[in-house]
Amino acid sequence: MQKKAGVGFYVFLVIFVFVIMFPFLWILLSSVKPLSELFGDQAFTWFTSNPTIQSYISVFTIRPFHLYLWNSLVVATVTTVYTVFVAAFAAYAIARLRFRGKAIILGVVLSVSMFPQIATISPIYIFLRNIGLTNSHLGLIIPYTTFALPLSIWLLVTFFRKIPFDLEESAKMDGASMMQTYFRIILPLAVPGIFTTAILVFIAAWNEFLFALVINTAEDYKTVPVGIGMFQGQYTIPWGEISAATVIVTIPLVIMVLLFQRRIVSGLTSGAVKE
């Protein structure tokens, strides 16, 4: 269906992108309004005549938003690095080696990725509470394995399968051991796939809500989604601060998406489409 796009098509595109982006746009505009203009009649004007960064300042001074950001960053990074590392070995074996039970293992991985979080949360919470890991970074990294590891294995298996088998064969001919083949030949070729997997796992861990809500209840250990989700004012909902915080977390994501969109799309669709 490779057709030339007409004017009507571009009009549609502009409307489509506007609808998708409107909430962000509105939040961005609200975040620079003075507090008095967030309520009443002025709440509906597009542009404020007195832009201010007051909301941005109070996000960091009145609220510990920098702690939320730090906690999310630590938890998501450690989760990503360790699960992708562990998964890379399993995925290589499933994709390239011959042994019995591969289909069953992959089936288990897929089923676990479908588990509802709520079904694992009570034992995990009790366990973490008993060993004193609630309100800690490790207390989130452990349960995040439940979704990050199956996701990593699943994606990496599809990427490993795409690497041509001939390379391995010729390495074997040259007398390389299996581990040598893995580290010298397969791994370098798999780097793009591993990177894509890491991006997707990072986003999943960064966005997680239920475990973070239940396990880290202390203000100092909240993550960004829980922190913003629980923003409460004394009398009113602090929309100014919420808008500012939303803008702060959205901008890095926008940059990441712009930089890595090809990879993200290939990762998202790799399980869904067969070549």
């Binding site: 982006m21 977390v249 799309v265």
Partner: peptide
């Protein structure tokens, strides 16, 4: 991709 990438809790608040 942007609506997909931001945390659901944040978009719900928005």
């Amino acid at each position: 991709l942007i609506p997909w990438a931001i945390p659901t809790a944040v978009s719900a608040m928005m």
